[in-house]
Structure formats: C-alpha cells, structure tokens
C-alpha cells in the first residue's frame, strides 16, 4: 500500500468512524425519548354543561383546570398550572384572582400576570361541545382569554 492509498483509506475510515459514533449517539438520544407517552390525554370530556354551576369556577383537580361558567358569556377553561415553575394555582373568589403558592405569582381574572415572577399569563384552553352534548377541553389548543363557548 502506498502513501496515497493509505491516506485515502485512512481518511475514509476516520470519516466512517465519526459517522458511526455520531449515528450511535443520535440513536441513544432518540432511545431516551419515549415513542409513546403513557400520560393522561390532552383532549378530554369533562361532563355535561349542566354539571357546572354559575359564578365561582369549578376546579378539576386531576385535569388541573378551572371551568368558568357565566350566565351571559358561557364557558371558559383556564389552566391551573402556574407559568413560572408549574405549581398548581388556586382561585380566590373573594378577590377574583389566581394565586400561586410557590413563588407568590398572582394572576387576574383574565389570567394576566399582576404580581410575582410568572413570565406569562395563564393558558386558556379551547372548550367545545361534543355530539353527545358533553364539554370537551383540548389542552393542546391554547386560546385567547376572551374565548367563550355559549351553550
């Protein structure tokens, strides 16, 4: 084997080695990303419209959402997950604001940040009516805070 062939084969070998290592690392990284998330569904039925009272919002603990029902405006669903570090916020009916227990963020009735370190307003989720007359919330669809569903 002459020098030219050696260098050519050597370079090709090095490139192949790097590519192999790179692909393997990529595969390891991909392996760590689950192909299926065994998590609660993002889109779910929460019950009949009549189940929800007017006035104070209903807190659904498992779904971490507040369901607001207004006589004139209809339904709206707010996320209870604080946008700061993911704690579950509480809604105080007396001052009509959301309070986060972790770092003291306060959100107004429309979800906007009024106080504290939260970087963004609370999310509002799309709520629709299914064929069988139930309310469906889709947590993948964030809507403006003035979004309402009239039933």
């Amino acid at each position: 084997m002459n020098r030219r062939a050696f260098l050519n084969w050597g370079t090709a070998g090095l490139v192949a080695l790097c590519a192999g290592v790179g692909v393997s690392l990529g595969a390891v990284l991909r392996f760590l990303v689950p192909s299926v998330f065994y998590e609660p569904p993002q889109s779910l039925k929460i019950g009949n419209p009549a189940d929800f009272p007017f006035g104070a919002p209903t807190f659904l603990a498992d779904e971490k959402i507040f369901v607001f029902r207004d006589r004139d405006k209809g339904f709206a669903v707010a996320s209870a997950v604080c946008t700061h570090l993911g704690c579950t916020v509480g809604y105080l009916q007396s001052d009509q604001r959301f309070h986060c227990p972790c770092h003291g963020s306060v959100f107004g009735a429309n979800g906007a940040v009024q106080h504290g370190p939260a970087p963004r307003a609370l999310n509002w989720f799309e709520v629709t009516l299914t064929r069988d007359g139930q309310l469906r919330v889709d947590k993948d669809k964030v809507v403006p805070s003035n979004y309402r569903l009239m039933v």
Binding site: A61, D62, H84, T88, P101, C102, H103, G104, G116, P117
Partner: peptide, 23 residues
C-alpha cells in the same frame, strides 16, 4: 399532582436557586 403544598420548596441546597428564581 392536584394539590400544591403552600409553600412548595425545592430541596434545601437548591433553595438559594429557588430564591433567585422567585425574582
């Protein structure tokens, strides 16, 4: 997951970090 204790705190050695994060 539905009920956050009040206050919710990270492990103590990260509380300095959490203090910074609260700002």
């Amino acid at each position: 997951p539905a009920k956050t204790p009040n206050p919710a705190k990270a492990p103590w050695y990260f509380l300095g970090l959490q203090e910074l994060v609260s700002h």
